[in-house]
Design a protein around this nucleic acid. Structure first.
Lengths: 68, 68
DNA sequence: AGTATTTGCAAAGTATACTTGACATTTTTT
DNA sequence: AAAAAATGTCAAGTATACTTTGCAAATACT
């Protein structure tokens, strides 16, 4: 799943490590989510979105999720 | 994590099984999420929210998720 | 009351999210 | 150019999401 995390991070001049610390995960978790290795859990998605003052849907791209 | 899934389902007179079918998971997955046994994945949360025409944040309650 | 539908739960298995530690490459800073 | 910081990746382990099957209890239907 694509995300706007890299852009949002760069806008605020934050490293992956700083974001990881802020949302209480490891740097590798942030890296993996950014490069699409896997998808964040709902709770982590929420924490990241709120950290940037956004909604989950503003930060994560669901266009690849099957429409019903 | 609490959710509004039971209410939303009942408003539309939908069984757990019908919702499960609509979002392509098993009935047990819906049950488990409704009773708080575990939290939906981000993709499933999105599918469920969209099925009800809502945002993820309108359907799932994040008040138990640590504020930063 | 009796039947059918719906819901809760349990156990065992698979898939995916996340951790820890460590290393190589790229980008930034001096 | 050299050092420092940031990023990508790999492997092995733990935790959690989800499946499958199956059964018991509750709710709704006739």
């Amino acid at each position: 799943m694509k995300t706007k995390i890299p852009e949002l991070r760069k806008q605020q001049k934050l490293s992956q490590e700083e974001l990881a610390l802020a949302v209480s995960v490891t740097r590798q978790t942030i890296t993996s989510i950014e490069v699409g290795k896997y998808t964040a859990s709902l709770a982590l998605a929420y924490k990241i979105a709120k950290f940037f003052g956004k909604s989950i849907e503003e930060v994560f791209d669901f266009s690849d999720v099957e429409i019903l």
